[in-house]
């Protein structure tokens, strides 16, 4: 499972949908793998605003990869409060394109890094989703459907 995908995953159990604890899922006994993929700066730029940064930070902490991640979402720099911002500030924000270097770093973290063995655990119900050979098993047992 790529860390990018994990940032969008919640617990599949129906009763967990309403709980804030069910997101993000927590890693346990995770085994990492680096698998270089084609770098696509446009895609990273598109996906940035949709990432949940606090969840991403939690994941990075659990895997001990904090060094790979900037401490805040670079997309936030691009946004300026519409009220109170001068014309000059807005222009600066427009010019402030996220550098290739930062995007590359994010690409390595989000797309290249994958968990190949381990478990994803829901913080609410405690259900464990096993990951084997990089494939997450999200089939639910009958009593949880």
């Amino acid at each position: 499972m790529k860390l990018l995908t994990v940032n969008f995953l919640t617990c599949a159990v129906k009763t967990c949908k309403t709980s804030s604890e069910s997101y993000p899922l927590h890693f346990r006994d995770a085994q990492l793998e680096q698998n270089p993929q084609t770098f696509n700066p446009l895609f990273i730029r598109n996906i940035l605003s949709r990432l949940d940064w606090s969840a991403l930070t939690t994941t990075a902490n659990e895997l001990g990869l904090t060094a790979m991640l900037p401490d805040h979402n670079p997309a936030d720099d691009m946004m300026v409060d519409s009220e109170g911002a001068t014309e000059e500030e807005k222009n600066r924000a427009k010019d402030n394109v996220i550098s290739e270097e930062v995007l590359k770093k994010l690409h390595t973290f989000l797309v290249d890094t994958a968990v190949i063995e381990g478990k994803l655990v829901c913080g609410n119900c405690g259900f464990e989703y096993p990951i084997k050979e990089g494939v997450g098993n999200f089939l639910l047992p009958p009593h949880l459907v």
Partner: peptide, 26 residues
Amino acid sequence: STLGPDGDLMLLDLGQGLPFRPGSFD
């Protein structure tokens, strides 16, 4: 075309619903 990365795979029953948070996919 530029080659996109490998897809991420999941074992899942579609009839049980998809475990994603709102607004995840294009």
